[in-house]
Design a protein around this nucleic acid. Sequence first.
DNA 1: TCAATAAATGCACTTCCATTGCATAGATAT
DNA 2: ATATCTATGCAATGGAAGTGCATTTATTGA
Lengths: 138, 138
Amino acid sequence: MKTIEQFLESKNIRVTAMRLLIYKFLAEKQVAVTLSDIENAFEKADRTTLYRTIKTFEEKAIVHQIDDGTGINKYALCEKGCNCEIETDLHLHFHCNNCNETICLTEHKIPQIKVPDGFVSENVNLVVKGVCDKCSGQ
Amino acid sequence: MKTIEQFLESKNIRVTAMRLLIYKFLAEKQVAVTLSDIENAFEKADRTTLYRTIKTFEEKAIVHQIDDGTGINKYALCEKGCNCEIETDLHLHFHCNNCNETICLTEHKIPQIKVPDGFVSENVNLVVKGVCDKCSGQ
DNA sequence: TCAATAAATGCACTTCCATTGCATAGATAT
DNA sequence: ATATCTATGCAATGGAAGTGCATTTATTGA
């Protein structure tokens, strides 16, 4: 069982207080968050720091960016089952039109998509929109 | 064979010179375009007019908006095979990482996506990214 | 035909988010 | 201890979406 510090170091991310806080924040969230969400959670911190921290996490492949069609970038920690570096490992995201939350459905793999001759597929972005379990239960 | 004027009228869109020009511009494009693309094509026209024209076309279901993950909205004319009003008629889009163009693959339908219990799927957005036929041929 | 009405267009803003440059603080290594 | 590199904070920029209002253009009906 690694500590977060050890985990970050193993990914070549230098450990700072801010980065630990942001990591923990992401870890306890069950949904993808926007930069503003993080900003609101850490009002003392500068927006740029948060932005660059997320970008660092993204580069080091411990966070993936999600484009759920709201026009605002969202981010989520990569889980055990999620290997963002590996392009064939693509899961889908669910965006709730009611609560506006976006959830990684890590266990749901994206089916193989055929493209016409001459086209080379490198990446697939799949977002399902609708009503999430929490909202549909109301 | 309808004229464009007749077609627009049949969709309850009032015909204006500007709208005809924008329609023709979209029609001759084989790829999805951004508002800026349209802006550059019609430098004399105001951006707001172009924006609202596109929105009108979208409401009247002769144009569909595409979110290809670049963060910029793109638009394309609905073709014969494309019935955007019908939610089950979802085709996929291909975004070329090389030339940055986005193409509607109208004939490629999106497979049925299963979501977990409690989730209600209303809409699906699928974008495949890679290299398009033109760029891969180089 | 002309006035009254409604829709389309143009201009000026605003807002929101992403991103960058630069100066400073803090950590690392020699 | 100091030189060096990285992280952080502040300020500013830029791009795109969207809105309010005045004006022009088109439509309708008397």
